[in-house]
């Protein structure tokens, strides 16, 4: 078990290195030059060259990469060209926004998926089953930016229930905070509900078909107790795995929602960094997001191994 975790951590570090190298060199290949972006339409070639020197961009690529790597080892991710602020600070400021939406979206999606997934499995082929299956299908088929636009107009403008853009910090006003993230979170949860609902429903169906369910029924236990105590417990593993994975994806995938609702999160920071060729900022963001995803995936895998040791050999492919 411990050996498995250690080997996973090792290979994760390799993955991170690979990702950082790819990011670095791709950014070097693509057109656009940070010095030129700073100097704008007034620049002469000599000015650009001088600024390159001042920024250290005239050194060979591998040297630039290595010095970045050395700084990273010292936990220094450097300063963004655009903002002149340290990358760590920028991430720290943007993270709460993205995390709040992602967490709230996951809460919405999980609550909805479990409620309707279970009902749908228990009352198979009933009206509620068809209803939740329709939601399941629509959830994955509706583009989040479309539903976002619709929500802004109806809930934001017509009914004036929610602010249409911007973020209110928790310390400013808790209520304002909830209101500012409610719409984005609902929009974000839309896509997740479909996936989760599907898993909850099918694993609940599996679980209901197990022998111990018949035993429980024969013993005359109350229906509610049967479903919650036995069936649900048996049906939990798959959804938990998916929740973990989906959450990891969400953490990096909020860019569209952040764009529509003008929220100052990680996703929009990524867009800004790419547009301004802010290599330092982008490198930091990529490292941060990828390691988050890897850590969550690892945690989920370990959790599953603890719950169900049989999976171990398959996962490792040995």
């Amino acid at each position: 078990m411990l050996r498995y975790v250690i080997s996973r951590v090792k290979s994760s570090i390799v993955v991170l290195l690979v990702v950082s190298i790819i990011t670095f060199f791709v950014l070097m290949i693509i057109p656009g030059d940070p010095a030129q972006l700073i100097l704008g339409t007034e620049a002469t070639p000599e000015m650009i060259e001088d600024l390159h020197k001042a920024m250290g961009l005239d050194k060979p690529l591998y040297q630039q990469y290595l010095s970045w790597l050395v700084d990273l080892a010292k936990l220094d991710m450097g300063k963004s060209y655009v903002y002149g602020e340290s990358v760590t600070t920028l991430i720290a400021k943007a993270l709460p926004v993205t995390m709040s939406i992602a967490v709230l979206a996951m809460i919405f999606a999980t609550a909805f998926a479990f409620l309707f997934g279970m009902l749908s499995a228990i009352k198979k082929n009933s009206f509620i089953d068809y209803f939740s299956r329709s939601i399941m299908q629509l959830g994955t088929a509706i583009p989040s930016f479309w539903i976002g636009m619709v929500f802004i107009v109806y809930f934001g403008l017509r009914l004036k229930l929610f602010p249409v853009s911007g973020f209110v910090t928790m310390s400013e006003s808790f209520l304002g905070f909830l209101k500012s993230i409610a719409l984005p979170a609902i929009v974000l949860s839309f896509g997740e509900v479909g996936t989760l609902l599907r898993i909850v429903r099918s694993s609940m169906l599996d679980s209901l078909m197990q022998d111990y369910m018949d035993m429980a029924k024969i013993q005359g236990l109350r229906a509610g107790k049967i479903y919650l105590k036995y069936a649900l417990r048996g049906a939990l593993i798959a959804p938990i795995t998916i929740i973990g994975m989906q959450f990891a994806k969400l953490a990096g995938g909020t860019v569209v929602v952040e764009t529509i609702f003008a929220l100052p999160g990680i996703g929009r920071l990524v867009l800004t960094a790419v547009e301004h060729r802010d290599i330092v900022l982008l490198q930091g963001l990529v490292m941060f997001i990828t390691s988050t995803v890897i850590i969550i995936t690892l945690m989920v895998d370990v959790l599953i191994m603890i719950i169900n040791p049989r999976i171990k050999s398959v996962e490792r492919g040995e």
Partner: peptide
């Protein structure tokens, strides 16, 4: 499979952004 892990871990939209720019 390690490369696949890397691709899966890479933020989707960023991957697309970079690929499309290249």
């Amino acid at each position: 499979m390690r490369i696949m892990d890397g691709l899966m871990a890479f933020p989707g939209i960023l991957l697309a952004l970079m690929l499309v720019t290249v």
